[in-house]
Structures are given as structure tokens and as C-alpha cells.
Design a protein around this nucleic acid. Structure first.
Length: 470
RNA sequence: CGGGGCGUAGCGCAGCUUGGUUAGCGCGCCUGGUUUGGGACCAGGAGGUCCCGGGUUCGAAUCCCGGCGCCCCGACCA
């Protein structure tokens, strides 16, 4: 029986497909205030796995977690002129509290460079205090005109790292380390999303940064998504907040700072990088449940077999969920689990069971394996790694198919209708960026010819990655 | 902030043009039963300030005026 599709097909209306999946996989709802988001348990479970993976990597680089306040004096934002200019259109400002108008308005943090800068100045006295490596997990508010769940909401959750260093070289090296060993490693190994790494052209830089690095992923509609960014802030914030240290020679020296972040947007990226017309497709590393054991029918023997299997699998450290059949017909339950993107399902029914078999099915390829009960654990364990690898390979193949080297802006505009164009940066220029803007396209990042991250946009022979984006 | 569209049950919608019994339909939900190897079926049932305010009228979901909200498409952002 061919069942009608539950979702709007991607090919018909990609944004609608995305909205459908967020609702039907029970990821999130719109909050009561426009632009706010209620993250439902399944969506939050995915976020928690993302958090854990990133947090572990951050700590490996030596940074420590801390927490800074949600409310920031408006005057702080104004201390760095580019920063305030960049953020003022998106600020939520508290003017009244305690029943009275406030003497100084309070800003709800859009990011925390300013408060953290203030405290870095207090905490850093000597070169011995450097580098100071901080991170916080928090919510931030940037008022959005056109919100979309996970991708762009007025309030979102993220991690923001803030560091201070004695030299530009040290700051730069640390930002690069975060970019490669935290973000890119996480994206490749956990989310199974290949990226283009590079620096933002000056027009796309973070407000107040001297250099912004980005990880650009390709979604199933060929558009780009910025999945994480790392900024070198030079001495801009150090100067604004008096972040000085005393050198070995006894001189007062300005610090060099960095900041870097990744947000709940990653959940949106995960959906759009791997999802298909049957719903989410989750790489095992980020899936709340790697395996669901499904009873084909409510039958004592079947249920007993399911429970036993479930126990064996979880004793092997696999995150499993059992579906005992009380929630409706088999077909319906299967489509629900597919919608949620669980990487593997094990169907346990009387027919197979009579022969000592169960059926293992891969979510990513749809392949079915009849397998002896005694061999299920081994098969599942090998498939988990296989699926993770295959999904990365499939996403890479998809991205490469839709990425083209081009020789002119006209060609780039054509290619970027449905993918990424690689064009020599020299051939873009200021007029080029304006023309791209008119086509709803941007230079996503600048790379060296071999794909490496350049030091700055003035290097010779850089390549611009051009695409539409979220 | 520009351009479109829409507010009627949890969700999706019809009804409005041409005002008139108790406001319908599908999905979902509850109860009972039969089912269950790819979105099951039968029977019964619960659920509504028809976005808000005002006006016209014997009578407004429907007509008029004014608000508010939401969604989609564009300019800014993670």
C-alpha cells in the first residue's frame, strides 16, 4: 500500500516541508510572543546532545564555563561603536522595572562581549592571568522581523565563548583552534554535515570584530546556513573596556580578545541538511534514541522479546526506545518513528520470531535486514558507525554535486540559484557584492584555493563561496 | 519596514457573495469492541467568547467602520 506523504514534499515547497517537520516530529512550537519558541522534549533532547558534544570539545581546549547576567546596562553596548551600531536594530530594551521608569535603560543581552569585557578587565591583572578562556551557555535576544523556528527566533539558546590573550597571534591561533577542533569537528563527526570553512568578507563581519570565521553548511535546497562563527576582536573590546595586563617587563599592555558561538540554529541545520520527505533523518551521534524496538503487534511473546532485546541493547550503551504497540497500528507507528528520524528500528513480529529472526531497518537508506536474534547487537553496533559515516558521505556528495567553479559573476548567479558557486574573489569586488544582494545572494565566505582558511581578505588568490542563505 | 494572504473546536478547513432554526466537515482526542508485517475499522461521545471593539438590523460568523494578531515572500542577523 502506497501511503500519501505525511509532509509537504521538499520539491514542492521547502519552507513548508520544514515547518511541517518541526510540528510533526514534535520539535517545537511558536511561543505566545511573536518570534519566541517553545522547544518540545524531542527537540530539546537533540539540543542537549548537541550541547554535550560541543561542551566537551570546548573544555578540551581549556575554556571554563561561567555565567553572566541577562541584563546589561545600555551604556556598555555603546562603548564599542561598531558593536552598538550593528546591534541596535535588534535590541530589546527594558525601560520600566519595579513599577518605575529606570534611570538608565537595561538591554536584554544580544550577546555578551560587553559585560564579559567589563569583568575581564577586573580579573586580568598580570600576564600570568592570560589567556583567560571563558564560555557560557545562555539565552540571548535579538528582535527578529521574520522569525523561523530554530533558524531565526527572537530568543534563542547558544553557547558563547570569550577569551583574552596577550598577543594577536595567540588570540588568532585560539580562535582558529575553536573553529577547527570544536565547531568543524563537531559538525563533521556528530551532525555529519560537511562545511566550507573560511572568513567572512568585511561586509558580513560581526559588529566589532577584526575577523570572522564561519562554517557554512549546505541544506537540501542548496541554500547555505552559517552553522557556527568564531571572531577575532583584535583590541577593539579591550580598548573599550580597559582590558589591560602587566607584561613581564612591567608594561601595561592591551589584551587581544576573541568570541565564538553556536546556537539552537544548529537544530534547524540538522533538519535541513539530512531530512527527507518522510521526516527527520538523524545521524546516530546526535539522535536521542539510536534504536527503536517495535512490537509488530501486542502479543505476549513479542513483547517479551522486545523487552529482552531492549535490555540487551541498552546494556551495550545504546540509547533505545521500546514501542510496545499500544499506540495504534503498526504502519502508523512506523511512520511516526520515521518522522522522528530514529536511525535504526527493529521490527519484532510473530512471523520472524518463529524463526528466531527480527527485522532491522535503516532510516537513512530504508534497507531492511532480516537478522537472527543472537546477532542483532553486533549488527546494530556496526550499523551505528556505518550510518554515521554514510550520512556524512551522502551529504558531502550532495554538496559537491551542487558546488561549481565559475569564472564570472553571471555564472555565479546562475549556479547559486540552487547551490554554491566558487568564484575568484578578485572578480567579485564591491559592485559584485551589490549585484549579488539584488539576487538575494551573498559571499558566504572566502577561502584559499585549497579550501584552507585565509588570514585576511587581502591575501592573493582567494576564492569566494557564493550562495543564497538562511 | 515594504508586498501578498489569513483569523470559525487541539490542527486543517467549509460556511460569508445573497444576514434567518441547534454553526458544519476532515484529522486528532475520549469510551467500548474488532484489529495490528507500511498512516486500521465500526459504534457512541466530548470539545466553539466564529480574533477584539463599535455600528447597521427584529436578527450578524456573514454587511459597515476601527483595532489587534498570525503566516508567506523580500531588505538585516546565529
Amino acid at each position: 500500500m502506497a501511503s500519501p506523504s505525511v509532509l509537504t514534499p521538499q520539491s514542492e515547497d521547502f519552507p513548508k516541508w520544514y515547518q511541517d517537520i518541526v510540528a510533526k516530529a514534535e520539535m517545537a512550537d511558536n511561543g505566545p510572543v511573536r518570534g519566541t519558541m517553545v522547544i518540545r522534549p524531542y527537540g530539546y533532547a537533540i539540543w542537549e546532545r548537541i550541547q554535550a558534544s560541543i561542551d566537551e570539545r570546548i573544555k578540551r581546549t581549556g575554556a571554563q564555563n561561567a555565567y553572566f547576567p541577562l541584563f546589561i546596562p545600555e551604556s556598555y553596548l555603546s562603548k564599542e561603536s561598531e558593536h552598538i551600531e550593528g546591534f541596535s536594530p535588534e535590541l530589546a530594551v527594558v525601560t520600566h522595572a519595579g513599577g518605575e521608569e529606570l534611570a538608565e535603560p537595561i538591554v536584554v543581552r544580544p550577546t555578551s562581549e560587553t559585560v564579559i569585557g567589563e569583568f575581564m578587565a577586573k580579573w586580568i591583572q598580570s600576564y600570568r592571568d592570560l589567556p583567560l578562556l571563558l564560555n557560557q551557555w545562555a539565552n540571548v535576544v535579538r528582535w527578529e522581523l521574520r522569525p523561523r523556528l530554530f533558524l531565526r527566533s527572537s530568543e534563542f539558546l547558544w553557547q558563547e565563548g570569550h577569551t583574552a590573550h596577550a598577543s594577536a597571534e595567540d588570540a588568532s591561533a585560539y580562535a582558529m583552534r575553536i573553529h577547527l577542533q570544536v565547531y568543524n569537528d563537531f559538525l563533521e563527526k556528530v551532525l555529519a554535515v560537511p562545511t566550507f570553512l573560511g572568513i567572512k568578507p568585511p561586509s558580513e563581519r560581526f559588529a566589532g570584530a577584526t575577523n570572522t570565521m564561519t562554517c557554512e553548511g549546505m541544506m537540501r535546497d542548496g541554500k547555505a546556513l552559517q552553522m557556527a562563527t568564531s571572531h577575532e576582536l583584535g583590541q577593539n573590546f579591550a580598548r573599550a573596556f580597559d582590558i589591560y595586563y602587566q607584561s613581564e617587563e612591567g608594561q601595561a599592555e592591551l589584551c587581544f580578545t576573541t568570541s565564538w558561538g553556536a546556537s539552537t540554529r544548529l537544530v534547524g541545520g540538522l533538519i535541513m541538511a539530512h531530512g527527507d520527505d518522510n521526516g527527520l533523518v538523524l545521524p546516530p551521534a546526535v539522535a536521542p534514541w539510536v534504536v527503536v524496538v517495535i512490537a509488530v503487534r501486542e502479543d505476549e511473546e513479542v513483547l517479551a522479546a522486545c523487552q529482552q532485546l531492549n535490555e540487551v541493547l541498552s546494556s551495550q550503551g545504546l540509547r533505545t526506545q521500546i514501542d510496545d504497540g499500544r499506540r495504534g497500528s503498526f504502519g502508523r507507528r512506523v511512520t511516526d518513528w520515521e518522522m522522528k528520524g530514529v536511525p535504526l528500528r527493529i521490527e519484532v513480529g510473530p512471523r520472524d520470531l518463529a524463526q528466531g529472526l527480527v527485522t532491522v531497518v535503516r532510516r537513512d537508506t530504508g534497507e531492511k535486514f532480516p537478522v537472527a536474534l543472537t546477532e542483532v547487537v553486533d549488527l546494530v553496533e556496526s550499523l551505528v558507525g556505518q550510518i554515521q559515516d554514510d550520512m556524512y558521505a551522502a551529504a558531502t556528495a550532495f554538496r559537491d554535486e551542487r558546488t561549481k567553479d565559475v569564472n564570472s559573476l553571471d555564472e555565479a548567479i546562475l549556479t547559486a540559484q540552487s547551490g554554491f558557486a566558487r568564484l575568484a574573489w578578485d572578480l567579485v569586488g564591491e559592485n559584485g557584492e551589490a549585484r549579488l544582494k539584488a539576487e538575494a545572494m551573498t559571499v558566504r565566505c572566502l577561502q584559499r584555493a585549497d579550501g584552507a582558511i585565509p588570514d585576511n581578505e587581502l591575501e592573493e588568490g582567494l576564492v569566494a563561496i557564493i550562495a543564497k542563505s538562511y
